[in-house]
Simulated assay, not measured.
Amino acid sequence: MSTVVLSIGSNLGDRRARLQSVVDELAETVRAVSPVYETEPWGGVEQGPFLNAVVIAEDPALDASGWLRRAQDLENAAERVRVERWGPRTLDVDLITCRAGEREVICSEADLTLPHPRAHQRAFVLVPWLAVEPDATLTVDGVARPVRELLAELDADERDGVRPAGGIRG
C-alpha cells in the first residue's frame, strides 16, 4: 500500500473546478482533502493568486513513480503548459511525500525527488496539510520533523498569506 500527500494548486481559469477535478479523478483512492486556501504566487513571477489544497490518497497498485505519472496525467488533462518556472498554471500537482507501508520513500532521480525538496519552505503546502493531518511529519535534510514545527519556522507574513477560501468535495 502506498500513501501520497499531494499539493494541488491553480491560478488560471476556474481554479476551484481544477482542484475538484483532481479529487474527482482520484476518486476512491482519496483518504483526505484539506480546505482550500488562497495564496499569493510563490517564486517571484507576476501573476494572479492561487487556490491551493492538499490531498492524501492511497493506492496499493502505485509506487512513487506511478504517483508521479498520475500527477502528470492530471496536469495534462487540465491542459497544463510549462512555459515559465513558477509561472501561472491551470493545475499544479506536486508529490510532497510518499510512504510504502510504514516506510517513507526517499528518492533523488532526475524527474522525482522525495520528499519534495522545498515543501518545508511553503506555507501553502504546510497549512492545508496540517488541516487534514495534524501529526504530519516531513523529512528535511534526512531528519523527520513535525510539519507544525516547520510551519512555525516560516516568516509570519508567509503563514498569514495562506487565507481560507472554502472547500471542495472530498
Results as ranks from 00 to 15, higher is better:
39 T>G: 04
19 L>R: 11
80 R>G: 05
152 A>W: 00
27 A>G: 15
16 R>F: 09
168 I>Y: 05
63 D>I: 10
88 P>V: 05
140 V>W: 02
15 R>S: 04
133 E>Q: 13
27 A>E: 05
18 R>H: 15
166 G>D: 02
143 V>F: 00
6 L>R: 02
128 P>F: 07
1 M>A: 11
38 E>Q: 15
131 A>N: 10
114 L>Y: 03
28 E>G: 15
5 V>I: 12
10 S>K: 08
50 F>C: 06
149 E>L: 01
89 R>Q: 08
106 I>N: 13
9 G>F: 10
10 S>V: 06
43 G>C: 08
25 E>S: 14
100 A>W: 09
112 L>F: 11
38 E>Y: 08
53 A>R: 12
158 E>Y: 00
131 A>T: 05
170 G>D: 01
124 F>P: 08
92 D>Q: 02
167 G>F: 12
122 R>I: 00
89 R>D: 11
76 N>I: 12
130 L>P: 01
156 A>D: 14
133 E>W: 07
15 R>P: 01
58 E>M: 08
114 L>V: 08
135 D>V: 03
58 E>C: 14
143 V>C: 01
52 N>C: 03
36 V>Q: 05
83 V>C: 02
82 R>A: 09
44 G>A: 13
170 G>K: 02
121 Q>A: 06
54 V>E: 00
160 D>F: 06
112 L>Q: 08
9 G>D: 06
123 A>D: 06
49 P>T: 03
161 G>D: 02
55 V>N: 04
87 G>W: 07
141 D>F: 00
60 P>I: 03
7 S>I: 10
12 L>E: 04
119 A>V: 00
59 D>E: 14
150 L>T: 09
105 V>C: 12
13 G>I: 08
145 R>M: 01
17 A>R: 04
89 R>G: 11
67 W>N: 11
3 T>H: 10
135 D>Y: 01
141 D>T: 02
3 T>Q: 14
85 R>I: 09
60 P>G: 14
132 V>L: 11
58 E>V: 12
160 D>M: 09
34 S>T: 05
15 R>T: 03
5 V>M: 11
129 W>M: 12
131 A>S: 15
23 V>E: 02
9 G>W: 07
3 T>E: 15
38 E>S: 14
46 E>W: 02
114 L>W: 06
160 D>G: 10
68 L>P: 09
14 D>W: 06
85 R>M: 10
84 E>H: 06
2 S>C: 09
53 A>Q: 07
109 E>P: 01
98 C>D: 08
